[in-house]
């Protein structure tokens, strides 16, 4: 079965951003430049947080606007990016309604969640989980 990261309850989020750092550690790097998940405040920390991560759309708008077919639909929902085909036009990023496609500056290519669930292991409050679609 295909999986995705789902936000269980955003009100449990304390904004620690450990998920972002975890995502980056997949590449055994510290920092956040390659993270495919992003936690930010909703107009100020006092109002809580939002979590931007690919929710694996069944018919993903990002794939529809890719001019080179670099973004392909994953069976069951979500996408895969083939960096070789990608010409870095940024259409996918602009067309993601929830802003879940990020930009890897060093590669100059888009970043999107690979649904691996590594970040989930570092969320101490159960805000996110890896679930079957």
């Amino acid at each position: 079965m295909v999986k995705r990261i789902s936000v269980v309850d955003v009100d449990l989020c304390v904004g620690c951003q450990l998920c972002m750092f975890a995502c980056n550690r997949r590449f055994a790097e510290a920092g956040i430049s390659r993270a495919a998940i992003f936690v930010q405040s909703v107009g100020g920390i006092e109002r809580g947080f939002i979590i931007r991560v690919c929710r694996a759309c069944k018919d993903p708008p990002c794939a529809k606007v890719c001019p080179t077919g670099a973004i392909s639909k994953r069976e069951g929902g979500g996408v895969r990016i083939d960096h070789k085909k990608c010409i870095a036009c940024g259409n996918c990023m602009k067309n993601c309604l929830i802003g879940a496609i990020f930009w890897d500056k060093s590669l100059n290519k888009p970043i999107v969640c690979t649904y691996c669930g590594y970040c989930v292991n570092y969320c101490p409050y159960g805000v996110i989980k890896l679930e079957e679609i």
Partner: peptide
């Protein structure tokens, strides 16, 4: 009303 964490700290000691 809310507990908040500093960046890269899971403790969230900030009590609001």
């Amino acid at each position: 009303g809310r507990r908040i964490a500093c960046a890269h700290c899971p403790v969230s000691c900030i009590h609001v």
